[in-house]
């Protein structure tokens, strides 16, 4: 009797012990994809915002399936991206954001333009996209701290593409103000950030003109730095914002 008991006990221990061995022996994802989305007109990276409203890189891994579920990588706010936990594999890569789409279809769904890139991701893979932004926004001079404690900034926007299909009306322009360097439509201090909303096509006359905006809501609190950025958008698709780079103003 005792013998049987011990036999069973040993069996249980053996079975339980063997179940501890790892079955998932597939290596961790370690490949890196990095690169930039570059404005074809200026050869600078295209400024965007962090998170869902900004540029994102779309990966379709075609090693296994012709019709994969896309995987998205958000771009950093300066237009570069760096993702270090990908599996090795063959991917069709494109980007979505505030620029003329890299993949365009006609009314029947046939692809007429396809600037996506098919890339074998292995080790560190670099992919750059050259794009035409909807709007190109430039600072004019530096933002100025006024005696009354507000900040005034001048800028202009121009069309980044000559294709009339992507020259929709400009709907609004914002001077985004924030207290840290991550600033944009999804991250700004709305007490101080002014905006102009345009109706219909009235903003089209403003293209190329100098526009000046002053922070609202009275004087900015003192003894700190503010990060400023201009964003504007057109009435196309998801109405992504185009941005300037970030300028810093120190309020003493």
């Amino acid at each position: 009797m005792k013998k049987i008991f011990y036999m069973i006990a040993i069996c249980i221990v053996a079975v339980a012990g063997s179940s501890c061995s790892k079955l998932d022996n597939y290596p961790d994802p370690t490949e890196t994809l990095n690169g930039s989305v570059i404005d074809a007109g200026t050869n600078k990276t295209l400024q965007t915002e962090n998170g869902g409203g900004g540029t994102r890189i779309k990966l379709m891994e075609i090693s296994w399936s012709d019709n994969p579920t896309p995987f998205y990588i958000s771009s950093m706010q300066d237009g570069t991206f760096n993702y270090t936990k990908l599996f090795a594999g063959k991917n069709v890569i494109s980007a979505e954001g505030a620029f003329v789409p890299l993949v365009q279809t006609d009314a029947s769904g046939a692809t007429i333009i396809d600037k996506s890139q098919t890339v074998d991701i292995k080790g560190t893979t670099n992919v750059n996209f050259s794009v035409d932004p909807f709007l190109r926004i430039e600072w004019i001079g530096e933002p100025v701290l006024n005696p009354d404690g507000t900040v005034t900034a001048s800028f202009k926007f121009t069309r980044g593409t000559t294709d009339p299909n992507f020259q929709q009306d400009i709907t609004d322009v914002h001077l985004f103000v924030n207290s840290n360097k991550f600033v944009g439509n999804n991250n700004f201090d709305n007490r101080y950030s002014p905006q102009i909303d345009y109706n219909g096509s009235e903003a089209n006359a403003q293209v190329g003109q100098t526009i000046t905006l002053t922070t609202k809501g009275g004087p900015l609190p003192t003894k700190r730095e503010y990060f400023l950025r201009v964003g504007a958008r057109t009435n196309y698709g998801l109405k992504y914002y185009n941005y300037t780079d970030v300028k810093t103003v120190t309020v003493p």
Binding site: A107, G109, A110, Y236, G237
Partner: peptide, 17 residues
């Protein structure tokens, strides 16, 4: 509507002509 999404077979799943 200004948004368009066309699937691989040419169906416009978002937006109406």
């Amino acid at each position: 509507n200004q948004i368009s999404l066309v699937d691989a077979t040419g169906k416009r799943v978002c937006g109406i002509p």
